[in-house]
Design a protein around this nucleic acid. Structure first.
Lengths: 340, 340
DNA sequence: TTTAGCACTCTCGGCACCAGAGTGCTAATT
DNA sequence: AATTAGCACTCTGGTGCCGAGAGTGCTAAA
């Protein structure tokens, strides 16, 4: 990205800000009037023409105001915007909400989605954190009706998993207790891989339970528990770019199919800090009308998730970025504290 | 609803079917041509005029074809449609999917949402079943980092609840075990209300855990666990009535705010069998463009939830009704089996 | 380098026009 | 009494035209 003179930077910044605020292509006249510049519209026109030539702005048609291109937004975000923090009052409100919530990862994620959506006035996305490795703390077997049994798994990370199953042979609660005791003695503090590697003589039922344990632990470790929480679709759809229903369908498709989102969010995990994806970055056709502001949260070696904001390219990046950063940090702190 | 002559019924039925299929107001000519009737368009016009006078049809404007009114759809659903079952092949596929899924209520609900959406080509809604009363089977306390503890609750209904908390005084795992043993001895097989009514001398920590237990059990009993699963928004939004974005926003609002849906679904619980709500029935302004096909599932005394389909009024009611009925019955069977 | 001036372009709302699709009504037919 | 042919009438939707307005690009002057 070549250098721009101070004035060109200023003009670009003003065009972007103005367009983000109004969704109307901005004219040279608006710029000088709104921001009280000491030059004539013609001068601004010349600068705009240059910026257009360099690819920072476009024309919807021969003669209407200018609109930022993806490159224009990018330049704005990286060089002109200036990083601001969320207002302290808002920070306090948010922090308060989290501390009032229960000590429960799922609650936190839902709350994060709500808070992000409301703060950034857009659609929020939150994935569950994934564990690189989990260790079994304790398992329990409980007899259930219809000669079934319930396996409850407590992992060291404070995660509880449950699974109903039908034992290969009917078992009383007494017998189940024996199985549980035996397996606890063998498995406590081991990871799924270690449990799988173990070779001990096991009864058929023990064998069955072991396989279930491995499966459930692998699931906890695997990539996102599947679900991606989101909230605030309504904010986004109120924006004028979504009076074109095709855009609405596009977003809904992305949200319902999940696979694309999973891929994008997985990429975010491998970086650190807030990332801004503008207009699909040319890589994701389906999101060519949208921007995303994303960040990982959690701790690299422990539990790592991603969250962010999805909205039209004409997004208030400053607000979105500070909101995403603040919530990501907050969640990271909570998780850090959680794991002790 | 007054009686209609055979021919008027037939005309009404054909208009509804045709309009549902094409979304185009249907003309007298279309009716005679498409369905090879032995009368002239003028005759049909007379019948249509009568049906309009009685409130079964309308005119978008002076001279376009007819469109069914809510009353028209209602008559169609109740008298003309005829009840069909889901094709056997489809039934088999669905049953197969459920039996292949894991023995897990949450999985079932998500699967029900997916299946319903795909089968009825519309948005599906599924609530978790609520318990009228639950009884504690077993509780467990596990020491966690940062002088926290994890409470795991297993209910007789095979439901597991977990909750991290900070004991009022630091506890070792040994001490936690004692608390757990003590409380298990007191509480096993009791309901939340009974536990609350119990008066035994308890240590402060025991007191704290007891309150948590009551809270968590009350939550399990309460109205829906909050979340309403949905799927297939994309199907619905592909319908031409949703090229008007206001309608899209309407639906998104209803889905994100939940409260309206909760109210409607709660009402469904108190009835039995499939219910059809057309155009909001005049009671729910926000859904005036939509219809819902809903049914309760589960067992009245045990666990009761609701599921259904949401779509435009111009919906294939036959398919929706048979899909909803089939899935509701299937889930009911699974739950019956689950509780033994 | 800036800017005044002006021609040019394109949108947008309004208006008229026309073809087409349907209806409602009347009068004739069965 | 029911049906239907015929016809006038209505309304939509597309097209083309017009004029006002908003902006631009370019040129020439400051």
């Amino acid at each position: 990205m070549a250098e721009l003179t101070d004035r060109r930077q200023k003009v670009l910044g003003l065009v972007v800000r103005q367009y983000i605020a109004t969704a109307i292509p901005v004219s040279s006249k608006t710029i000088v009037e709104q921001y009280g510049l000491d030059v004539s519209p013609a001068t601004i026109r010349n600068e705009m023409a240059y910026l257009e030539e360099q690819g920072y702005l476009t024309h919807p048609y021969t003669s209407s105001g200018r609109v930022p291109t993806e490159k224009g937004y990018r330049y704005f975000v990286e060089r002109l915007m200036g990083e601001a923090e969320l207002p302290l009052a808002e920070q306090r409100t948010i922090r308060h909400q989290f501390h009032q919530a229960r000590l429960d990862l799922e609650q936190w994620m839902k709350l994060a989605a709500t808070v992000l959506a409301r703060t950034a006035h857009n659609t929020s996305l939150v994935t569950a954190p994934t564990l690189p490795q989990s260790r079994l703390k304790h398992l329990e077997l409980i007899a259930a009706p219809n000669s079934r049994a319930l396996l409850v798994l407590v992992l060291r990370e404070g995660i509880v998993k449950q699974q109903m199953f039908t034992p290969v042979q009917p078992m009383t609660q007494e017998e189940l207790n024996q199985v549980a005791n035996h397996l606890n003695a063998l498995f406590t503090n081991l990871s799924a891989a270690q449990i799988a590697a173990l070779s001990h003589p096991l009864t058929p039922v023990e064998e069955q339970v072991t396989n279930l344990v491995i499966e459930l632990m692998a699931e906890a470790e695997g990539r996102f528990g599947g679900e991606i929480y989101h909230d605030g679709l309504l904010h986004t759809f109120r924006q004028p770019e979504f009076s074109e229903i095709e855009n609405v369908r596009q977003i809904i498709r992305v949200l319902e199919e999940q696979s694309l989102l999973e891929a994008i969010l997985a990429e975010v995990l491998s970086s650190s800090g807030v990332q801004v994806i503008i207009g699909g970055e040319g890589r994701w056709e389906e999101l060519s009308e949208c921007s995303m502001v994303l960040a990982p949260y959690g701790e690299a070696g422990r539990a790592l998730g991603a969250l962010g904001v999805l909205g039209p390219m004409r997004m208030r990046y400053g607000r979105a970025i500070s909101a995403v950063r603040y919530v990501a940090n907050l969640l990271s702190d909570l998780i850090h504290d959680w794991y002790g």
